[in-house]
Design a protein around this nucleic acid. Structure first.
Length: 358
DNA sequence: TCTGGGGTCCTAGGACCC
DNA sequence: TCTGGGGTCCTAGGACCC
């Protein structure tokens, strides 16, 4: 027997969406490419992905398309083509599953964990990169870790097209002095709350008082953040097929809605789309939630449970009733509708993987 | 120059029950 | 006159991720 041990690999495609677009339009290679919305820089939309050439100008995901276009006047701006990315993603995941002894846990269009037993994880990672490139002509980076969290964080140091290993041995040296917001699962809000307690670096978080964290963040999140600071957590890659908890559709209107007839039409359209999504899966609906965002208070969004069934007439009537009761008369900037689906018994309690490591 | 769309999970607080 | 203590379920809101 060899001294093979188990490793977690995190495979992350480089600038995935932009790369897929360049593949079918080779003339775009080397140019600043921005993908977002319907490809119209004058619309209310944001950047999905920018190519490295565009990122050099300071463009990144989530930035308003209008601003991105101003930063890079020469950019090629393309509409989001979800079907194309889904197809490319499926080929990538198939390639990963075809690797020897690989357990694959898909995280999104462009990333997955791969669990393997090997004595040479770097060699395995390089073979994964080559297999993906040969099959799809797409480049990826690979993080190697002894936990999911460390593998995920490691990938960032490997980009682009590289491999990086992060384990209990080098975690503190590599991550210790970095801000907590660099951790997977810590965003701007949590990092600010941590900073209020003097916890600004990963090293601080790693040795933070458990009681303080529990008081501040609750019985689950408190201990979880402490673990995160040490890079600890599960090392089990779970390939159980993912089951959606729900489906939602939302629309930001290019012009705010002011007429009741407009609201009626918009809700009807959303309801049809959501119910179609659910019907495709053939699963029942246990609740419908309506989301409304009024202009100009962009940050003020509310969602309310409006129905326990998917009956389109009930959904429509309840949605309109709610829109009337809340601040009626104010222009509406966004409407969203979400259908919740029941989970089978054996899929509850985290058996079905979601956000990994949770 | 204003902030997409699709998801998941956790927490707090109220209602209700014994 | 005053209001325990434990438990569950549900909803709203917040935070995060790709």
């Amino acid at each position: 027997m060899s001294d093979a041990r188990s490793w977690v690999l995190h495979v992350d495609l480089d600038q995935f969406v932009a790369a897929v677009e360049v593949l079918r339009r080779p003339e775009l290679a080397g140019k600043p490419v921005i993908v977002g919305g319907r490809g119209d820089p004058m619309e209310r939309a944001v950047v999905s992905t920018a190519s490295y050439e565009a990122r050099a100008f300071g463009v990144g995901s989530g930035m308003p398309l209008r601003i991105a276009a101003r930063k890079v006047p020469d950019a090629v701006i393309l509409p989001v083509d979800a079907d194309a990315y889904t197809a490319a993603s499926a080929e990538v995941m198939e390639t990963l599953r075809a690797q020897p002894d690989a357990t694959v846990q898909v995280l999104g269009w462009d990333e997955a964990f791969v669990g393997v037993q090997t004595e040479d994880p770097e060699g395995y990672a390089r073979r994964v990169q080559k297999a993906v490139l040969d099959r799809t002509r797409l480049h990826c980076s690979v993080g190697i870790g002894d936990t999911l969290v460390r593998a995920k964080v490691a990938t960032g140091f490997g980009k682009p097209r590289g491999v990086f290993r992060l384990t209990a041995e080098n975690w503190a040296a590599v991550m210790g002095e970095r801000p907590t917001v660099d951790l997977w699962g810590v965003g701007s809000k949590i990092s600010r709350r941590l900073a209020a307690h003097g916890i600004t670096t990963v090293a601080h978080l790693a040795r933070a008082d458990l009681e303080l964290l529990t008081t501040e963040f609750g019985p689950r999140m408190g201990p979880w953040y402490a673990q995160l600071g040490r890079g600890e957590g599960t090392d089990v890659v779970d390939d159980t097929p993912w089951l959606a908890r729900g489906h939602s559709r939302e629309t930001t209107f290019q012009q705010d809605l002011t007429e009741r007839a407009q609201v009626e039409a918009a809700v009807g359209e959303l309801a049809a789309r959501v119910l179609e999504d659910v019907a495709r899966e053939g699963r029942p609906v246990i609740g419908i939630t309506l989301k409304v965002r009024y202009a100009p208070f962009l940050t003020r969004t509310f969602a309310r449970r409006i129905a326990a069934t998917a009956d389109p007439e009930v959904v429509l009537a309840q949605a309109l009733d709610l829109a009337d009761r809340f601040e009626s008369g104010r222009p509406i900037r966004l409407l969203g509708l979400r259908a919740e689906m029941p989970m089978p018994e054996d899929a509850r309690d985290g058996h079905t993987p979601t956000r990994s490591g949770w």
